Amino acid sequence: MYALLSAVFAALTAVFAKKGVSNIDSDLAMAIRTVVITVISWGLFFWKGNVSGIGTLTRQNWRYLVFSGLATGLSWIFYFKALQMGKVSQVAPVDKMSVAIAILLSVVFLGEVLTWKMALGAALIIAGTIVLIL
């Protein structure tokens, strides 16, 4: 259910961002969205009372969360620029190709097992993306 809700809100993100990025700098649009997300994230964190969890973070947690944040930031920079220049119906599918890339990276870097179903699913995502952008 959470994954489905995530997909719905990700779709709304693309549509709202396309409307919001029109006639302004894409970096400004991304910065505004980032502030909103930051307020929501920290608000939820404090509201749930998880403050003691900060002390349990290890160096590895910090390192990989910082790397993840950097990757997210770079992804958003390119995503907003792509939305500004292209159609949502073409940008969003290419962006979602990250699912196929994540599958491959999880095998290489995390040692996850690549099943034939996962390989076929990744291949279909890539093929579907190519069909949608052509």
Rank of each mutant, 00 (worst) to 15 (best):
F80R: 11
L83I: 10
D25H: 13
I37K: 02
T129E: 02
W47F: 07
S89G: 14
F78C: 11
R59E: 11
F78E: 13
L44W: 14
L132D: 02
A3H: 03
V51M: 14
A29L: 02
V108W: 14
G49D: 03
I40R: 05
Y64V: 00
G43R: 00
Q90W: 09
T34R: 07
R33N: 15
K81V: 15
A14S: 13
F67H: 00
A71G: 05
F9G: 03
M1Y: 01
F45L: 11
A127H: 03
Y64I: 03
I101S: 14
M1E: 05
L5G: 15
G20I: 11
A10K: 10
S26W: 14
S22T: 11
V66Q: 00
F67T: 04
L105G: 12
L28H: 12
R59Y: 01
V131P: 00
A11P: 09
V113M: 08
I130L: 13
E112V: 04
S52F: 09
K81P: 02
T129C: 13
V66P: 01
F109C: 13
S41I: 09
L120M: 08
A92V: 12
F67N: 00
V88F: 00
I125T: 08
G128K: 09
Q60G: 06
Y64G: 00
V39R: 06
D25Q: 11
L105P: 09
W47I: 12
I101A: 15
S106W: 06
A102E: 14
T115F: 01
V66T: 02
I101W: 15
A11D: 07
V8N: 09
R59A: 08
A29F: 08
R63A: 04
L28K: 09
A7Q: 02
V99Y: 10
G121Q: 04
N23R: 12
M97G: 15
G69H: 00
L5P: 05
L12C: 13
S106F: 05
D27L: 14
I37R: 01
L132V: 05
V99T: 13
L134R: 15
G86E: 06
G73Y: 04
V21L: 02
L134N: 12
T129H: 02
M1S: 11
V39S: 11
D95N: 12
L12K: 04
G69P: 00
G111H: 02
A123D: 04
F45M: 10
A82E: 06
G69E: 00
T58V: 01
G86T: 09
N23S: 12
V35P: 07
V91F: 04
T38C: 15
S41E: 02
A119Q: 10
F78D: 13
I32L: 13
A29T: 10
S89L: 07
I133F: 03
A29R: 05
W42P: 04
I40A: 14
D95A: 10
D95C: 00
G20F: 09
W47R: 06
Q84V: 11
F109Q: 08
A127M: 08
A7K: 02
W76V: 03
V36K: 06
P93V: 10
A102N: 15
T129S: 09
T56I: 05
I24H: 03
A29Y: 01
S106G: 15
